[in-house]
Design a protein around this nucleic acid. Structure first.
Lengths: 232, 232
DNA sequence: TTTACATATACCAATTATAGTCCAAATGAT
DNA sequence: ATCATTTGGACTATAATTGGTATATGTAAA
């Protein structure tokens, strides 16, 4: 068929389309990672043994396809993300979706807590709760104490995978865009309500009432969900 | 020797981005520990054979990423606490703890599926289920098809965070120590039973019966838990 | 031929790296 | 307490690198 070129071993098709395909494959394969800089146009021209104009034609197609971004004076960067990192997840997760996720796992966590937690850990829960009570005037402090309380709960489950998952959720919680909304939602009254719910939860755990504790957690999160949607 | 290329092996990309990546890797790998002081900017410039300004540019990025803290007149210090990696978690998570975690989130996922999934996705679920039915003779194939089915369920929830979490769970599922036990557990009879449960689940989803679907998933996972403990 | 594409070259403008200098905070030895 | 040294912070002028543009030429297919 076509044996005009003997340097085509680098690419299946010839010309700019060949460079395009070659680079695209490397990008989607992850040979070039997200945000990584490609070699300069001049280098690529050497590597592929073509003229720089040809490389540029291919890069223009890649740019149009949204796989790369070219920056004047700087370089050509991969803008294609093969597997999203936690950062990406944090950015595309809405507060509602976050609550929904917590609603999935936290009620089950407290069930495990009731069956697995020992006294030492329950004491840590109590300490964490008291800390949250002290910061009823400061939304930021309360928010931190609240995160800590729920994370301590995860630890009490004794399940390393659940703990790890909850750490990731907490990362996203503190990352998310809506931090600025906190001050609107977390009025003193709300903080008091949340603290009361936490107290009731701890009580149920002490009584070893798995179903009760789980229900309180569900109610707690549904309340948080309502508060989130309400003023929005 | 050729001092131009002698230092290139230290970093994959050139310039400040290269220094950044090189240092980041050393930090997350634990080559530099928490609170440890990095070499001075001038030393780093020598080591990497670049100008001090380049090192500073990289350090600024590291600081922005929260990996280091720079103290005027004192030095640059690692502020990154090595979190356990996913590998570590996979190694210390037992099959029982894995099931327990799935028991936490999957019943809730199916509830979300009932309220969020569209017909196109339900069709994908059906395809995935049929694939699992075809592989009733081969435990390995079934296991893969099963993972895919449950992951498709997560996708149907339309919640990026839940999807991401379930991907991590699936990573661990395929990593875990117990893979070799599969052949003992996954007899043809068990596979048929699981497939029937999947079928019933899909049915409930089609009927938009959230509670029913969730209960089926719970029963399904409790069955899997029993099977896991039984012959062990 | 015409047409489309690749090559080769030169230059432009934005960005980044280099190699200095000086400053001020922290540190350690005396 | 003092002082010399080391450290990160700030700034500059210069050089090198990079993508952007333009032009002339060559080549192969329509």
């Amino acid at each position: 068929m076509n044996s005009q070129n003997n340097n085509t071993h680098l690419r299946a098709t010839s010309g700019a389309a060949g460079i395009f395909n070659g680079l695209r494959e490397r990008i989607v394969n992850g040979d070039y990672n997200f945000n990584e800089r490609l070699p300069s146009e001049r280098d690529l021209a050497l590597k592929f043994a073509v003229a720089r104009g040809t490389v540029r034609a291919a890069l223009e197609q890649l740019e149009q396809a949204g796989l790369v971004v070219r920056k004047f004076g700087s370089g050509t960067f991969v803008s294609y993300n093969t597997n999203p990192t936690q950062e990406d997840i944090a950015e595309e997760t809405s507060p509602l979706e976050l609550i929904e996720t917590r609603l999935a796992i936290e009620p089950h966590i407290v069930k495990l807590v009731v069956s697995n937690a020992n006294n030492r850990e329950i004491r840590k829960l109590k300490e964490s709760l008291e800390k949250a009570m002290l910061s009823r005037r400061n939304p930021n402090d309360f928010s931190k104490a609240d995160e800590e309380f729920h994370l301590t709960l995860a630890h009490c489950s004794q399940n390393p995978l659940l703990i790890w998952i909850y750490q990731r959720i907490n990362d996203i919680r503190s990352h998310t865009q809506w931090s600025h909304r906190k001050n609107n939602i977390l009025t003193s009254n709300k903080i008091d309500l949340y603290n009361k719910q936490h107290e009731a939860l701890l009580d149920a755990i002490k009584r070893r009432d798995a179903e009760g504790a789980s229900n309180i957690m569900t109610a707690h999160l549904i309340q948080a969900k309502k508060d989130l949607l309400g003023p929005g």
